[in-house]
Design a protein around this nucleic acid. Sequence first.
DNA 1: CGCATACTTGGCAAATATGCCAAATAGCGG
DNA 2: CCGCTATTTGGCATATTTGCCAAGTATGCG
Lengths: 108, 108
Amino acid sequence: MRTRLPHRKATASRRSSVVKAMAHPTRLLFMELLLDGEKCVCELTEAAGCDITTVSKHLAVMKKAGLLASEKRGLQVFYQIACPCFVEFFRCIDLIASSQNTRLRCAC
Amino acid sequence: MRTRLPHRKATASRRSSVVKAMAHPTRLLFMELLLDGEKCVCELTEAAGCDITTVSKHLAVMKKAGLLASEKRGLQVFYQIACPCFVEFFRCIDLIASSQNTRLRCAC
DNA sequence: CGCATACTTGGCAAATATGCCAAATAGCGG
DNA sequence: CCGCTATTTGGCATATTTGCCAAGTATGCG
């Protein structure tokens, strides 16, 4: 064992709080859209096509997890990606999504 | 808009099927353990400390999503990481997990 | 064949997540 | 201060996920 099991369990648990916060199509759409730059809640709401209260709750979860950062300017709240390293990750899961059940190892 | 919205929604949806499959502490523990190399179901069960039927179902979901690959040898089934690009991702979410709510941008 | 071991599947109760409505809060213009 | 717009919060019904038990399948061994 490279590392003690209890330590690895704690690591996995911490990671899951972040991963859970993006494990939803709408939330991943927000991350994808925010790669272009910050957007306000109303813009994201229009893109998602669901209730603004639902959007607000999604964003709150993502912010709490550390995925997004927000800034209030006037009446609007602008959200942005807190950590650009996701770009690389999305490339990775796109490969996985396209190779589901087809071969032993994907092409990454 | 860099890309059409419907296309981006489809992308987000595809990604969510992969992300959901790892959005659980036990599943992320498996990925962490499997970074050391393949393990059989009974080894993973002992590490996770839960029922073997639960473990088997977790593994089935992860395999279907393309995260893991499996090989049966004799009585045992060995699982392994299908795509090593996760290592980079874990580094990314570890940074996020450690900077939750503390600053606008994490250090990645 | 018969039995043991390793794993998977079906089914169900309990826990958790989702999404809308109604209501509350915050900032701006007059 | 008042009304308007943007967003958040509380609450609740519905949907999904989780995890165990019981039962089934698969493989090796004598």
